[in-house]
Design a protein around this nucleic acid. Structure first.
Lengths: 113, 113
DNA sequence: CTGTATCCTTATAGATACTG
DNA sequence: CAGTATCTATAAGGATACAG
């Protein structure tokens, strides 16, 4: 352990850790094109996600500098999420991956549930 | 459950499932540029991986059509792994992700261990 | 509305020994 | 050389109730 990986492999691992996980890709994708979404909107759009996972995922994305969290101190409270510039830099790749995924799914006859 | 996701989010999830996991990104990256690597070579290069995980990961990549496994029936046995055309289509994505990761690591002052 | 807290289940990965 | 098998540990995710 604690052996030095070569820089290339290390960065690949690093990036996957930052955008891996069950919901991060989807959330980044939903926030594309300067979408600004509220907590409740994300909760509906990211179907099946529990509040715990949504909060946890958003916090990680925020700590990693990919997502901006804006709190409006109103009653009832309003919290909006959007992509940072760093997060937006990932959009072309997410999109590339999405296109690849769609192609693969067609080849395999898979459907989305 | 069993609700239909919209196609875009579905494909993103699909793709992440296919290339997620702790070692898949690295292995795909190591097999770039038409590299052909033997089991033992991968075992050395993917530092810290156990034979169980290496085999498991390679099998999944093979089943997903990203990696080609070629068995040479010799003594001692020789098994070579390479990227399929489908797998090669992911290289730009992996590479961009790697560049992004390197940039982020520099910003944060992270190092590779 | 936007979360937390707690407990529980499942998925993923690691250690180690062994085989054709 | 290229794996398997078995067991264990840890991480990730899910269910549910509740709070500011």
């Amino acid at each position: 352990m604690n052996k030095k990986l070569n820089p290339a492999s290390c960065a690949v691992d690093y990036a996957f850790q930052r955008i891996g996980g069950k919901y991060k890709g989807r959330i980044i994708w939903y926030l594309n094109d300067n979408n600004i979404l509220r907590y409740g909107e994300l909760r509906r759009i990211v179907q099946g996600i529990t509040p715990k996972m949504l909060t946890q995922t958003l916090r990680e994305l925020e700590e990693d500098g990919l997502v901006l969290r804006t709190v409006h101190h109103e009653v009832p409270p309003r919290v909006e999420y959007s992509l940072t510039e760093t997060g937006k830099e990932l959009l072309p790749f997410i999109n590339h991956l999405r296109v690849w995924g769609e192609k693969q799914m067609k080849l395999e006859g898979d459907t989305c549930y």
